[in-house]
Simulated assay, not measured.
Amino acid sequence: MRARLAQVTFPGSAALRAFECAGRLASFQRAALELKVTESAISHQIRKLERDLGIELFVRGHRQIKLTPAGRAYLQIVQQAHRDILRATLSLEGSATTQLRLSVLPALAQYWLIPHLGALQERLPGTSLSVFVSSDLVDLDRDEIDIAIRYGTGTWPRCRVQHLMDEWVFPVAAPELARRARKAGWLEEIPRLQNLQHPEEWAPWIDKFGGGEVIRLESSPLILEAACQGLGVAIGRRPFVDRLLAEDRLRKLPGDEKPSGKGYFILSPAGRAGDTPTIQAGIAALLELAASQPTNKNPVPKGTGFSQLNRPRGRRNAP
C-alpha cells in the first residue's frame, strides 16, 4: 500500500471537492447541483480518486450511494484538512479576528442556532460572529450580510444557494395531553393548534384531529409555547421541536414523521464575493453543524412544496 501511495500524486482539488461534497450529501446528483457541474463529472472525479488511492470510497446502489468504512474515515480527514486550510488562509489575511455577519429567521435562531451557538463558535476560531434576526427576504449586498439562512424549496435569485437541512413534521403535545391521547376516540376532541403561516400542515392528520376546537396562532414560537402549556395538539416541526422533546416539554404522538417538502438553505453572495475564506469557513461550519444533528434526514425533493423564497419584497417568509 505504501509503495502504491508513493507513486500517487497528491489528489487534485477538484477530486477532493467532489468527494467531500458527495460524501457529505450522500448523493452524486446533489453534489453536482451544489458544485454546478454534471453528475457524470462528479462520478468521473471520484472514480479517478478511487483508482489513485487503490480503494473503494463508495458503495453504489441502484439509486443511492453509501460511503464505505474507508470512505467515511477518508471523508473525516478531508473535511478536517479543509478546515485547516481555511484557518491557515485566514491567518494570512493579516488579522487575528475576522467578522462574519449571519442573518437567521427568528424561530430558527431561537430553537436551533442559539442552543448550538457554542458549537458553531468552536468551529470558527478567530472569527467574530454577528447574528441578525429577520423574517424578511434578504439582499446580501444591500443588507451587508455575509450569509443568510432562509426557508423554502431552494429557489433564490442572484446568490448561491446550498441546502442546510430539511423540515420534518408530526403531531406533538404536552406530556399530560400525550398520555390522555392514548384513549380511543379522545383525539377527535382535543383542541388543534393551527399555525397561520402553514395553513395546510394538518392535512395528513385531519382524520384523527379534525373534530376538536381550532386555535389559530401566527408563528411557530407561539404554536410551540401554546403546545407546551397544554392548550392543544400542534404540528412539531424539526428542527424547532427537538430541544422541547429532549427536555420532555413536548412528546411525539404516534405516527410517522413526514417531510414538509421544504427546508433551510444557506444563501451567500454569488461570484467572487462569496469565495472569501471567512464566508467559506462559515458555510462549512454550518453544514457540519447541521450534519451532526439527527434531524438532518433525507433531502427535500426538488420541486415539491410551496416555495416561500420568491415572494415580493417586504413579505415575510419564516415559519
Rank of each mutant, 00 (worst) to 15 (best):
E247D: 15
H198R: 14
R180I: 11
Q280M: 13
K183P: 00
E176G: 01
L224M: 15
G274P: 07
E200D: 15
L244S: 06
P254C: 11
K208S: 12
P191H: 10
G210P: 05
I279H: 02
I206H: 12
I206R: 13
E213P: 04
M165T: 08
I283S: 03
L187Y: 01
A285P: 00
G212N: 07
K208I: 05
L187K: 07
F170S: 07
A273E: 11
I190Q: 06
E176D: 13
Q280L: 14
L196K: 14
F209D: 00
P171R: 07
G282W: 00
A281K: 02
A174Y: 03
V169F: 10
D166L: 02
L164F: 09
I283Q: 01
G210H: 13
G282E: 03
W168E: 00
D207E: 14
A234T: 02
E167Y: 04
L217K: 04
R243A: 10
D256H: 12
K183D: 08
K262L: 11
L224Y: 10
N195Q: 14
R249V: 07
P171H: 10
E176I: 05
F170H: 14
L193G: 00
K252W: 08
W202S: 02
W202M: 09
L286N: 03
L267S: 03
L267W: 00
A227R: 03
R180P: 02
L289W: 05
L187F: 00
G274Y: 04
A173R: 06
V241P: 06
E176H: 12
S292N: 11
P221N: 13
G185C: 09
T278E: 12
P277T: 07
P221K: 12
P221I: 12
A178Q: 05
L267M: 10
L286K: 02
P199S: 13
F209R: 02
D275K: 09
A284E: 09
G236E: 03
D207C: 04
G263A: 11
V169G: 02
L222A: 15
S292Y: 06
L217Y: 04
E257N: 06
P254A: 12
R238G: 04
G255T: 04
A285G: 08
A270D: 08
A284G: 07
P277N: 11
A273L: 11
